[in-house]
Design a protein around this nucleic acid. Structure first.
Length: 505
DNA sequence: TACCTGTAGG
């Protein structure tokens, strides 16, 4: 049995947690615990606020609540960056009399382990369970991601001996797609040519390979493959053309005007070719082109295309509209962007927070505090859900403007929001406080972010470190250092090399 | 089990 061989986890955070005398130790106010039906709620709170391994033994069991398969998956998802704990958590569950683990949670664990290249452990686990084709596909994907393509192919070939059901063309497509996604298009084409006589081929497979060449910016090769596909009697579909279109539009260079125009012409050519073959462009086709216009700040073209697609009877989605709104905002045409918002609503599509973020970005560029705050207030008033990304845009804007009192207000709202601050929020805040030379506060938030499981960027640490040294804040620095040691966090070797020497002004 | 767009900001 594998779980007997796995040593208990020795992560510092976990070690510290398991030695606390009270099993819960939560500082937050939990709602009144109801053993019967509040497991979901409680778990949600615990997962978002604390290391979830903590709760598996303590509060839930304390209240007679057992883990449902859904909660097991949630927990594993939360543990996905901490493979050792994930593994011992899983083994711990599996050793119980009626394990709540499922094939899904098993696959989740396999993915977590394979992501950190624990391939031996993965193979071992697979060999002692009843794996599904998906299990192998996950492994294959992670092997390819790790650059071990040969092993991946061998795994794919060996898998059927472990399985009741053999791989189908669908699984073969997954293999080729993964190879292409990680840039091994040439290999994918080789594998395809080798086995097409046995496994066959379809439009999907060709589309995958065409996308692979587009990813490598080999548009000419992609086009050749498309002709080959047509010659061999397989009709391309709208997705095939969208892939090619996206390849052209993404690699398009935007600035020398002539180059941009040339790209617009090649995109138009794809549209023509589609129509010739009787394939109507869809929302995606238009979105791809609109995105290119938006990147090139071509608001006129953008509006024209939007009009055209509506004439053609294709309904734009929120994302389509957002692309155009973004383009108008980035061209400084805020009024027209607002008009477009109304048009959207008239079409029965509510703008998303991403749509409003375009406005915030423009306000930020204009240093328009009241404009930004007005919109923010409206959103909070029920206009639209304010998500963490919106908060981050706002934080960035007001940190840039040095309006720390507004930053504080927004931070307060962010803390109370559903998702709460993320790595970007903390990074932004700490950098802002450093810019204002509020070292102690910055340090407080730096420690807090680590405690909440966000690994700070090296540049954040460096900024704080330099600031603390230059302003001679020895005590604060020691506190920070202690925290880093506790969590075994290091930021490169250069800081270990130099013993701490406060800079004398 | 993802054949295609969309974040944000370089």
């Amino acid at each position: 049995m594998l779980h007997q061989k796995i040593p208990p986890p020795t992560f510092p955070l976990l070690r510290r947690l398991s030695t606390t005398t009270t099993p819960t130790g939560f500082s937050l106010n939990l709602p009144k615990l109801e053993p019967s039906n509040d497991a979901e709620l409680i778990t949600q709170i615990l997962i978002t606020n604390h290391n979830p391994f903590h709760f598996t033994e303590s509060p839930l069991q304390l209240h007679g609540i057992s883990l449902s398969p859904h909660l097991v998956n949630q927990t594993l998802l939360r543990l996905r960056h901490n493979s050792k704990i994930a593994l011992s958590f899983f083994q711990h569950l599996r050793s119980s009399p009626s394990p709540p683990t499922t094939p899904t949670s098993f696959n989740l664990l396999i993915d977590i382990l394979a992501k950190v290249r624990q391939f031996d452990v993965v193979r071992h686990l697979i060999s002692e369970t009843d794996p599904s084709p998906e299990t192998f596909l996950i492994l294959v994907k992670r092997l390819i991601a790790a650059g071990l393509t040969r092993q991946a192919l061998r795994t794919f070939d060996d898998a059927p001996t472990f399985l009741q059901t053999p791989f189908t063309l669908h699984h073969f497509a997954f293999l080729l797609d993964t190879l292409c996604k990680y840039g091994h298009t040439r290999l994918a084409v080789g594998v395809f040519n080798e086995r097409r006589s046995v496994l066959g081929s379809d439009a999907k497979i060709y589309t995958i390979l065409i996308a692979g060449w587009c990813k490598l910016r080999r548009i000419d090769t992609a086009e050749r493959l498309l002709s080959e596909m047509i010659e061999s009697g397989i009709e391309p579909n709208v997705v095939t053309y969208n892939v090619l279109l996206n390849g052209i539009c993404r690699t398009a260079s935007l600035h020398p005007e002539e180059r941009f125009e040339k790209n617009v012409r090649s995109a138009e050519k794809v549209f023509d070719e589609m129509r010739e073959r009787g394939i109507e462009p869809d929302v995606t086709s238009f979105s791809i082109v609109l995105h290119m216009y938006s990147r090139a700040h071509k608001s006129e073209l953008s509006l024209d295309k939007l009009k055209l697609m509506k004439v053609k009877g294709i309904s734009p989605t929120v994302e389509t509209y957002t692309s155009v709104v973004k383009c108008l905002c980035s061209c400084g045409r805020l009024e027209e962007a607002e008009e477009l918002l109304e048009e959207m609503v008239g079409d029965g599509i509510s703008p998303s927070s991403a749509t409003y973020n375009c406005f915030f970005k423009e306000y930020k560029g204009r240093k328009d505090v009241s404009g930004a705050m007005d919109l923010y207030k409206k959103m909070r008033g029920g206009l639209c859900e304010v998500n963490t990304r919106t908060y981050n845009v706002l934080l960035g804007a007001f940190v840039n403007l040095g309006k720390m009192e507004i930053v504080e207000e927004i931070w307060c709202d962010l803390r109370g929001s559903v998702t709460g601050p993320d790595l970007d929020s903390y990074t932004c805040l700490v950098h802002g406080l450093c810019g204002k030379e509020k070292w102690r506060e910055a340090c407080g938030y730096f420690v807090e972010m680590i405690e909440r499981g966000f690994l700070p960027q090296k540049v954040t640490f460096e900024t704080l470190y330099k600031g603390l040294i230059q302003s001679n804040k020895l005590r604060t620095w020691r506190r920070l250092k202690k925290k880093l040691d506790e969590e075994s966090i290091t930021f490169g070797s250069e800081f270990q090399r130099y013993p701490f020497q406060p800079y004398k002004r």
